[in-house]
Deep mutational scan, measured.
Amino acid sequence: EVTIKANLIFANGSTQTAEFKGTFEKATSEAYAYADTLKKDNGEYTVDVADKGYTLNIKFAG
């Protein structure tokens, strides 16, 4: 089991951190699915992958 950390960075400057656990593939998939649910209210997003994929910096356009 691994932990994927998602740093969520919103257009208004606020930030939030979420963690997803499971296999690497499952946790990564859940992180992207979570970002997709936030897209409606926060706009499109870009992802900067860090720490060999264990950290995702997800920035929303607003």
Rank of each mutant, 00 (worst) to 15 (best):
V2G: 05
T3L: 12
T3D: 04
K5Y: 14
A6C: 04
A6S: 07
A6Q: 03
A6H: 00
L8G: 01
L8E: 00
I9V: 15
I9P: 00
F10D: 02
F10R: 03
F10P: 01
F10A: 03
A11K: 12
A11N: 10
N12Q: 07
N12R: 07
N12A: 06
G13S: 09
G13M: 11
S14F: 13
T15M: 13
T15E: 08
Q16H: 15
Q16M: 14
T17P: 06
T17W: 13
A18K: 12
E19M: 10
E19D: 12
F20A: 01
F20R: 01
F20M: 03
K21E: 10
G22F: 02
G22E: 03
G22L: 01
G22K: 01
T23H: 09
T23Y: 15
F24P: 05
F24H: 08
F24S: 04
E25M: 06
K26Y: 12
T28I: 12
T28K: 07
S29W: 08
S29L: 14
E30P: 00
A31F: 03
A33H: 14
A33R: 13
Y34V: 05
Y34G: 01
Y34R: 04
A35F: 13
A35G: 02
A35K: 00
D36V: 04
D36G: 04
T37I: 15
L38P: 00
K39R: 12
K39V: 11
K40P: 13
K40F: 09
K40V: 08
K40D: 08
D41F: 09
D41S: 15
D41H: 13
N42S: 10
N42V: 06
G43Q: 03
G43N: 03
E44S: 14
Y45K: 01
Y45P: 02
T46C: 07
T46H: 08
T46D: 08
V47M: 05
V47L: 05
D48K: 08
D48C: 06
V49A: 12
V49C: 05
A50D: 09
D51N: 10
K52A: 15
K52F: 13
K52T: 10
G53Y: 03
Y54K: 09
Y54M: 07
Y54P: 02
T55F: 07
T55G: 03
L56T: 01
L56S: 01
N57G: 04
N57E: 10
N57Y: 11
N57Q: 08
I58Y: 06
K59S: 09
F60V: 01
F60C: 01
F60T: 00
A61M: 12
A61E: 09
A61D: 09
